[in-house]
Computed example of a mutant assay.
Amino acid sequence: GALQPIADLGEISRRAGVLLLVDAAQTAGVCPIHMEAMGIHLLAAPGHKGLLGPQGTGVLLVDPAVELRPIREGGTGAHSRSLEQPAVFPEGFESGTLNVPGIAGLAAGVAFLAAESVAAVRRRELELSTALLEGLRAIPGVTVYGPERPEDRIGVVAFNLEGMDPGEVEARLDEEFGVVGRAGLHCNPGAHAALGTLDRGGAMRLSPGYFTTMAEIEAAVKGVERIAQG
């Protein structure tokens, strides 16, 4: 859940004369991002997380000064008479039939965010994650990973209960308390190796979002507390 110093990395990239590609999987739609100010050349994000779109969608934002070459070629529905892949952007990178229903859903999610504002989403997430962090840290036997200050992180809270497999915690929270989270390595075994949680199967993760209520946060904390008590 730690926020990375992207602007600092952008400055380092600028001095080195290299491009900066940012994976904004957990921050797009949740934290304000300014590509030019932060020195970002390419920004990739899935549609189904903070952008509130359906699964199977995503975006790649590209600085106009960056030249890319497609890795997949085929029918694009544009320049059909040509045997060459279109050189125009974005058609040259959108071979095949597009996921129109998914794109429409993603557009609706982005429109909602534009109306609410990303800053408002960030404030709400900070409020919820602060309550979750404080509640979990007060439970004996619970280890919470990541930065201490909520301002230095996003609403992704990973933790473990002493002596318990994270998969068991996930199952019990779901079955006994109706709290849905995710246990495991979270597509990042390297991070868990650094945390020292790789050999125990990773960690349990709870991720409050814009539509999460404070009552749900309290229910999650109470559920973890009950499980920790045995």
Score class of each variant (00 low, 15 high):
21 L>Y: 03
22 V>W: 00
23 D>L: 02
24 A>M: 00
25 A>S: 14
26 Q>A: 07
29 G>K: 08
30 V>R: 15
31 C>F: 14
36 E>V: 11
37 A>I: 06
38 M>R: 08
39 G>T: 11
40 I>S: 09
41 H>Y: 06
43 L>P: 04
46 P>L: 07
64 P>I: 11
64 P>Y: 12
65 A>Q: 14
66 V>C: 14
67 E>P: 10
69 R>A: 14
70 P>I: 07
70 P>Q: 06
73 E>C: 08
73 E>G: 08
73 E>Q: 10
74 G>W: 01
74 G>N: 08
76 T>V: 06
77 G>M: 00
77 G>I: 03
79 H>I: 04
81 R>P: 00
83 L>W: 13
89 F>L: 13
90 P>M: 13
92 G>R: 00
93 F>P: 05
96 G>R: 01
100 V>T: 12
103 I>F: 12
110 V>W: 06
110 V>F: 01
114 A>D: 15
115 A>V: 07
116 E>V: 15
120 A>Q: 14
123 R>M: 00
125 E>L: 09
130 T>R: 11
131 A>C: 03
136 L>G: 08
136 L>W: 09
137 R>L: 11
141 G>R: 12
142 V>W: 02
143 T>L: 06
143 T>Q: 11
144 V>M: 00
146 G>Y: 05
148 E>V: 10
156 V>N: 08
156 V>R: 04
157 V>M: 08
159 F>W: 06
163 G>K: 10
164 M>E: 11
